[in-house]
Design a protein around this nucleic acid. Structure first.
Lengths: 124, 124
DNA sequence: TGGAACTATGTGCGTGACGAATATATTCTT
DNA sequence: AAGAATATATTCGTCACGCACATAGTTCCA
């Protein structure tokens, strides 16, 4: 699948995001979090519907840092305690990639709504 | 990634859909099409932004038929001519899976909007 | 205070979907 | 007649995933 050629390559090369990665960027878009908190945030946002597998999550985080979408940051002074935690924050690139993916999904959802795919589930 | 456990297994087992597959279901949600027309429909819907690779498309179609999400159907009487074309239509299952995915994406897009991820691109 | 449950991060293995390239043949256009 | 566009399909290598497992620190409470 190729995506919008008008986007800068830095961004286009990453699209489309996997559902897992988009969920991660979404959960980090309101501030830094450590991996495990991220799992909980996703579960909470979706009312328990969506859960990330630990293995998938931590590997995705490593890839996103590698790609420059996330930075590993110092633990926030407020929240403190557990030495094991590794905190991540969106980079500018990460935010722009998340935004681009959000627009792509918005377009898909809009089309789905226009087709009535979101409502009538029993009619095919 | 696990999805909504309240969904029937028939549906949940397929989620989340790949972007390519959702694009296909979307393009078929207003009627049957053959593979190549489907590529064009996606390109047109997205104003040329999104394109499907031929290889990926045809393999995905075969998988979707195998999984009971699509049926291969007779060419519509109206449109006729090319012997090579193979037409596909959503099954009931395919439509329900597409609808479930659309709801999942709608939730993600809603969250993205709530986080301001869709607007301010330059602020991180 | 001891043990279970939870928190937290990570790796190995097999699978599945993908992009890119290529193959083949037909139909349309000029 | 030739070339472009249409139409479907396969092979190959890669990458992200789910699942299982490994390891260890922390919290809780009986």
């Amino acid at each position: 699948m190729t995506t919008d050629p008008t986007l800068p390559e830095d961004i286009r090369n990453h699209l489309p995001l996997t559902p897992v990665v988009f969920e991660i960027l979404l959960a980090l878009s309101d501030g830094e979090r450590h991996g495990y908190a991220l799992m909980q945030a996703v579960e909470e946002r979706t009312g328990g519907a969506v859960r990330l597998h630990a293995g998938t999550l931590y590997r995705a985080l490593a890839r996103l840092v590698e790609a420059g979408c996330l930075d590993e940051v110092d633990p926030p002074a407020a929240e403190e305690a557990d030495e094991r935690r590794r905190y991540y924050a969106l980079t500018s690139l990460g935010r722009r990639i998340g935004a681009a993916e959000a627009r792509r999904l918005e377009s898909q959802v809009g089309a789905a709504r226009a087709q009535g795919l979101l409502e009538g589930l029993e009619r095919a």
